[in-house]
Write a protein that binds this DNA or RNA. Structure first.
Lengths: 325, 325
DNA sequence: TTGTACGCGTTATCAC
DNA sequence: GTGATAACGCGTACAA
């Protein structure tokens, strides 16, 4: 592989001049031309490892996500990637599997590799995160709020829970259950809390047996839904607080032909195949969240040193039966 | 951040000894203990950029995929990641968007960052790939075969096309259409070719207007399906040669309530919500493909210098109505 | 403006 | 088995 000294030799200049040309610093026109010619001729491109070592940071950002197979997060990743691409950054996608230990590993790697920044959808508390923040590394938190003093892009989960629940109430259901995620997941807890409050405000019952904490995946939604339908006094409608739980719920309803049971879903269903004319859908726009987070990160990288910002994504109105595109 | 010299100083040894301890080379027991104590005390972890520069390769592998939002590829990615994790490697996920230029960019980055290896699902021809192979970099191709002399893990696309088509024939359909991907995508072409051959062997018609080249995404499947249903002599069954096209087709059938139209899908439907009892499904096991590819890559990294291997994933039997888990 | 020379943090070579 | 030191390839003071 050609190195900077080769280019310098061929162009008849010093390595410093080559470096300056490559980094857009002022250089006499004829020398610059000679350098560019040499670069082309050798097919030279700078060794990014050496550059990172010297600059103390790479052109790579870490995107640390709890579940890379969830379309919510891949959409978010797509948004991050598009902004990164524009800004000349590459993205390392890391899958924590909701495991705080894996998360720490990846954050450690991000630091050891001198990555330029981190976008993190946190799974549990992270001591390392606090350290990164303290050292002024560029960090943006997405989806799940943390107490730390960092840039964050989140949803208004209470509002999401309220709107989705209210939509089911408005549609005339009176015994509305809720399937949400694990108690460790703050978004799951907040949405469920909103479900309870909204029902109670409407004078409807919100008994404990109508609230199921499942995992936030398809199988969780399926088993929770099955369980609910088998209650002695089953619900006439169900709120699924994330996309995959919603898929699981839809599957059970399709399999048992219980089209009479109302359904509300917080989240997008990119690959849904059944008709959902009858489902209250609350879209989240994860791609926008990724775009926003990445733009905030890029600003920080560019040197913005303002106080930590907390951006709350606007809550969309509930729609009936328009699945995510 | 603590550096290796700090550890050496605290432990009262040279940096060389610290390095040896960290890399599992023989060191006197008491010195080793001192080093480990110092490492713990300082919370030291080696700077991977410096290590990469010195070793001429990093601990990162590039996984270059055409569409990160397609569950087929995220599943594959998941498989790769699991093996990588075991082997102490991190994965950089790169999305080419089916764009050969982006693909070249990412391969160039992989080289410039001294990444230890590349797993690539190719979009179009790649001159850079040839160079990587020539220089004996660890490379494994997945999903779409290339002529180059590289390790490859692919499907038997002809066999897939045959089995899926035959299943529809066996179910009694006689006018069977095919929705496949772009002509640039070799898997799409091969599966369509098998469709044609299988129909002709069975004495059934395979006219050109029953073969639609769509994009390999949901909207492609939707518009192709709509188009087919509007033909003056429409098909009584349709073969969708990938998962997303299959989703698009299912959506159209659900929306138009054309349950009478037979459907065969090559690929898994992780998030399908409708009942698919009536659909011929041919699962592909992308996760296994990822596992296999990553294992092959790791072997190469470990020094295996044998001739290029071409692994063909076993073709599974067609099933009726068991969506991917 | 240009060139020289050092340093980024680690590993590997070489003497001891 | 251990320690000093020279690389790895680049960017940037500093001197010219």
């Amino acid at each position: 592989m050609a190195r900077i000294v080769d280019v310098a030799a061929l162009a008849g200049v010093s390595t410093a001049t080559v470096s300056r040309v490559l980094n857009g610093k002022p250089v006499r026109a004829d020398l610059e031309a000679a350098v560019r010619r040499a670069v082309d001729e050798l097919g030279y491109s700078p060794n990014r490892t050496a550059r990172s070592l010297r600059r103390q940071h790479s052109e790579v950002l870490a995107l640390v996500l709890p579940d890379i197979e969830n379309p919510f997060f891949t959409s978010l990743a797509r948004g991050v990637e598009d902004v990164a691409q524009e800004s000349g950054l590459s993205v390392v996608l890391c899958n924590t599997d909701e495991d705080p230990d894996k998360q720490e590993q990846y954050l450690q790697i991000a630091e050891d590799e001198n990555m330029v920044g981190v976008i993190l959808a946190p799974a549990g508390r992270s001591p390392l995160l606090a350290r990164l923040v303290e050292r002024d590394r560029a960090v943006v938190i997405v989806d799940r709020a943390v107490p730390d003093d960092v840039d964050q892009v989140t949803f208004d989960n209470l509002e999401l829970g309220r709107r989705a629940t209210q939509s089911l109430i408005d549609r005339g259901y009176t015994r509305i259950a809720c399937v949400t995620g694990p108690e460790e997941t703050p978004t799951a807890v907040a949405r469920a809390q909103a479900w309870r409050e909204t029902l109670e405000s409407a004078g409807l019952p919100a008994p404990d047996d109508l609230l199921v904490h499942a995992n936030f995946r398809v199988d969780g939604g399926q088993s929770a839904m099955t369980e609910l339908l088998e209650l002695s006094s089953p619900p006439d409608a169900v709120l699924a607080t994330n996309n995959l739980v919603g898929v699981g719920a839809l599957r059970v309803l399709a399999a048992t032909e219980r089209g009479d049971v109302g359904l509300g879903i917080i989240g997008d269903l990119p690959f849904v195949t059944s008709s959902v004319d009858n489902v209250s859908l609350l879209q989240l726009r994860p791609r926008e969240m990724g775009l926003t987070a990445a733009r905030m990160l890029v600003e920080r990288i560019r040197g913005d040193a303002g106080p930590a910002r907390r951006v709350v994504q606007p809550t969309l109105p509930v729609t009936l039966g328009s699945p995510g595109t």
